[in-house]
Nucleic acid binder design. Structure first.
Lengths: 344, 344
DNA sequence: ACGAGCAGTTGACACGTGTAAGCATGAGTC
DNA sequence: GACTCATGCTTACACGTGTCAACTGCTCGT
């Protein structure tokens, strides 16, 4: 036996991918017939024997339609553009986006993630428009302008949906009001009798998108009362937490809303290591209701964030795509409620 | 003053998106010239005044090229297909994929995430091939067959890269050998004198992709010794952890490799709540080296997983796309080393 | 004065697909 | 036998782009 040649089982690998014309030739019919058969076009009647011939030919050649040609001809796509967040967004959002993609896929859309890497808002909108997406769902990291929305719509987008806190002219807005998170947390702390309340601001870049409105909500919650809110920067490292804990007493705070559960856990441990009693001396509350928060002692209080499900949003996208001129429903994406445990 | 009409600042929104022909008409030149100018084609010389006219016309109309038409004509795309993981993959991988996308974007690729929702391997390959991607990077959730790889290559993919533990004929394989993780963990526990070692298996569906090879590695590490390995199923909930802890002593284990840090934290807390001393009675080790693992007491031992960076992988993709027939470099994506802290 | 050469521009084709409109065939009806 | 009429299929065009080859003026060298 000579050395086995198992690399190229059937086809010379450099052979170009077959087109519907090749299928037609092999089946002995016209290209149109091939198209009708493979798309099950109901308006045209094709006999069963022909259908079988065509399908067999397609199978034999390993025919795969060309998506670009198809959507060029069709004049539209099933692409849903999902501008990528390049920020280290928490597990809650990761899961949300995963589910969203999944559900869109179920509805037969093609999900395209498109980072926009330091582009301006209008440049980004332009880059997006090149793909002629039928829908754009923007987290709000890029703040679309009304012109951008209009450009997208003119280029075929039937749904442009922003998830951010701000409303953009022409786009469906799904208000994701981070302020409520800060508001609920601080309102809870106030009820517990706390007066000097710190609000942890992550130093990691990109998170301002969330931390700023959360701080704003916190401020609003003490407005007109005798309580005060103090922003406190901290990075997501043990060192940073330890440094903050070391000078904690100078700050004179009796409570802190720690952005989210991960930062809260980190800070709480650092405070304990610096002999600051939680919640006796300082109350701590996080956000996102992570399972891990219940493992520390005292159990971490948190703000439970009720997010719209990915399926829900996917269905909204689909609805708007089908009927772009329907009543512009306004949705509040988030509900937030404090979930007191033991650390506050 | 009548009521202000601010909705449609300039254009009747239903006007179709302009094509290069429209730009040509407005600039008073031919369509070819427009293409040459906007693409900066260096082989053809166009006078400066004409360039300016064309650019002005394009700007005025808000011209955006049609990506599908462009790639149809070009015969290839810059699409990198990233089959979506629909499994609840940990923060380590989330970050990795984020970075990968980001870096691919920098290299001017269009990243398309394409879930393949319960399709078979060959069906999935077919669906992917429709997009004519220039590269496919597959996590290995869908196990590509050699036929699938060949189909993708014939349809224009210059790089097909699998990240899974298995090697696929025809594809570049980047071996992500999860077995090392289990191996390192168990080897460490054995050094510490542990003999009856549990290996936690998450009950969450989809994670077998990781847990199975980790278990295999653990088994290999005790092979030929007097130590034994015992799989232990658990779900990521407090109840499941508590139930497991309640019958822990029946299992007669003196150590456990808990899949990853999150499961490890959950289990360790449950064991402590059931008055089982860690590490005295049972040693616990996780994996992924999460920051949060250092917050519990005792501090959680872990396996630090050294992953290739997203940038690194992106550059590999680019290299293979440029030179598909280059030496088929073999990469080991992961290094794993035990990081003993206090729980083992 | 006349061909050669060059800069600047254009006409025409190809990429792969979907579909409207038209053509051939044969069966049925008057 | 001429007419509808349904059936089954094909011919022909359009979608928007990139690019080759050809064409037009113009300048230059002799």
């Amino acid at each position: 036996m000579p050395i086995a040649m198992s690399q190229t089982p059937k086809q010379p690998a450099d052979r170009p991918v077959p087109t519907s014309a090749d299928v037609a030739r092999l089946a002995g019919v016209s290209r149109a017939t091939v198209s009708y058969v493979l798309n099950n076009t109901s308006a045209v009647r094709i006999s069963e024997p022909t259908r079988i011939k065509v399908r067999a030919a397609a199978e034999e050649l390993g025919y795969v339609p060309h998506a670009a040609a198809r959507s060029l001809r069709a004049g539209h796509t099933r692409i849903v553009l999902l501008p990528t967040a390049h920020i280290p967004v928490g597990p809650l959002y990761s899961r949300f986006f995963n589910e969203l993609q999944w559900e869109l896929r179920r509805l037969d859309y093609t999900v395209v993630q498109y980072g926009s890497l330091g582009l301006g808002a209008d440049e980004a909108a332009r880059a997006w428009a090149e793909l002629r997406p039928v829908a754009v769902v923007s987290l709000g990291e890029i703040e679309l302008t009304p012109q951008g929305v209009q450009l997208l719509k003119r280029s075929g987008a039937r749904a442009v949906i922003t998830l951010g806190p701000q409303r953009v002219e022409g786009a469906h807005a799904l208000v994701m009001d981070q302020r409520e998170v800060g508001g609920s947390a601080v309102a809870h702390l106030r009820e517990r009798g706390r007066r000097r309340i710190g609000v942890l601001i992550p130093e990691e870049p990109g998170l301002e998108l969330f931390s700023r409105p959360r701080l704003a909500g916190a401020r609003k919650a003490v407005h007109g009362t005798d309580a005060v809110v103090e922003p406190v920067p901290m990075a997501y490292t043990e060192e940073s937490a330890a440094q903050l804990a070391a000078r904690w007493r100078e700050l004179g705070l009796d409570a802190v809303f720690a952005y989210n559960d991960e930062y809260a856990m980190l800070l709480m441990r650092a405070l304990q290591d610096a002999d600051i009693d939680v919640p006796g001396e300082t109350a701590v509350i996080g956000a996102d209701d992570l399972l891990l928060g219940r493992l520390l002692r005292p159990r971490l209080s948190t703000v439970h964030v009720e997010m719209v499900t990915g399926r829900h949003l996917a269905e909204l996208v689909d609805r708007v795509v089908r009927d772009p001129d329907g009543a512009p429903e306004r949705h509040d994406l988030m509900g937030a409620r404090a979930l007191p445990r033991e650390s506050s």
